[in-house]
Structure formats: structure tokens, C-alpha cells
């Protein structure tokens, strides 16, 4: 992911070249732009991926982008998943219509949580966290998963807002 850590992902997916007025506007908020990019790296490619592989993080992100029909981010995360070597079930995660055959598996429980918290976070309750524990996730796994979901949703909203500025 060498290039991904140095190229600003949001500029890239929106196709903002050096002469873009929106690029100049984003650079007026250089600090938050930089921290948005470092947050991207922390969520998608942290130093220690622990129990969520880089490939799994990328396909989860592709799934969330697809749930919001954010085509630019979906394409980006599908490419990233390929770079990270996603295959088999992990690759299938990127398709929001796909769910694992075993409905009680760790991955099934994770995907139900990802889909709920992405599209309908207000419906989440304590019970949803208890299901994650029951599927074998530990405290840190749950915070990691919440962080990945929260970051990607932030990124979807930023890209949607910036697209509005770019196109009007």
C-alpha cells in the first residue's frame, strides 16, 4: 500500500488535479485533510492489523461504499482489496448482496453489524455488541470494527459533500 499512504485518497477518487479549485479549497484546511488521510491509513492499513487482515478491511470498506452507492470509493476499495490479495470469502465481502452460508459464523455476525451500523446506526443496541462477543470478538476487536465502520462512513459523507461542491 506504499502509494496509497502518500497519495491523498479523496483527491484521487474525485479526480482533483493540480488546477482544480476544489483541491485549492481542500488545501485551505490542510491539517484536517492530512489527518483524514492518516486516519484512512490507521483504519485500512495500521501497523498491527491484528484480527482484521488488510484484505478484510479493504473489502469491508468496499461493501460500505457500495451500500451508499458511493461509486468512486467502491472502485477504490475494490482495487485496494486486490492489492491486498483478497480472495475467496474475503473478496465476496465487497458485494453487499453476499452473505456467508453459515449464518452463525464470525464473518456473518460481523457483516450484519457492518450493514446495520452503516445504513441504520440508530437501530443499534447493546444486543448487537453482545452478538459480536458471542461470535468470538474481544474488546479490542469490537472497537477496531467500530472504528473501521465509523471512518469509512465519515469518508463516504466527505466525498459526497465534496462531489456536490465539485459539480455545482
Amino acid at each position: 500500500m506504499t502509494t496509497e499512504t502518500t497519495v491523498d485518497v479523496i483527491d484521487k477518487v474525485l479526480g482533483l488535479g493540480p488546477s482544480s479549485p476544489l483541491l485549492a479549497l481542500r488545501d485551505e484546511r490542510a491539517k484536517l485533510k492530512h489527518l483524514t488521510q492518516t486516519s484512512y491509513v490507521a483504519a485500512l492499513h495500521p501497523a498491527d492489523p491484528r484480527n482484521f487482515s488488510y484484505a478484510e478491511r479493504a473489502t469491508l470498506a468496499a461493501r460500505m461504499a457500495a451500500l451508499w452507492t458511493s461509486q468512486e470509493l467502491q472502485a477504490h476499495y475494490r482495487d485496494l482489496a486486490e492489492t491486498e490479495g483478497a480472495s475467496g470469502d474475503v473478496l465476496s465481502i465487497a458485494d453487499p448482496a453476499w452473505t456467508p452460508e453459515d449464518e452463525a459464523s464470525r464473518l456473518s455476525v460481523i457483516l450484519r453489524h457492518v450493514d446495520l451500523v452503516t445504513k441504520n446506526p440508530k437501530a443499534a443496541t447493546r444486543e448487537n455488541i453482545e452478538k459480536l462477543y458471542a461470535a468470538g470478538l474481544d474488546d479490542r476487536d469490537i472497537v477496531t470494527l467500530a472504528g473501521i465502520i465509523a471512518f469509512v462512513n465519515y469518508q463516504v459523507l466527505v466525498v459526497a459533500g465534496l462531489k456536490m461542491l465539485r459539480d455545482n
Binding site: 479549497l25 481542500r26 485551505e28 484546511r29 484536517l32 451500523v117 446506526p121 440508530k122 443499534a124 448487537n128 455488541i129 469490537i142 472497537v143 467500530a146 472504528g147 465502520i149 465509523a150 471512518f151 462512513n153 465519515y154 469518508q155 463516504v156 459523507l157 466527505v158 459533500g161 465534496l162 461542491l165
Partner: peptide
Amino acid sequence: LEILDLIHSVAIFGWANRLMHTL
């Protein structure tokens, strides 16, 4: 710039809400 700031303040709560309300 004001619109850009508004986008970010809404988006960062798309983040914060998904932590605070779910955890």
C-alpha cells in the same frame, strides 16, 4: 470554505455517532 467546514462537521458526526451510539 463555510460549506466545506459544514460538510466536515456533519461527516465527523457520522463517525462519532457510530462510535458513541453503538459502543
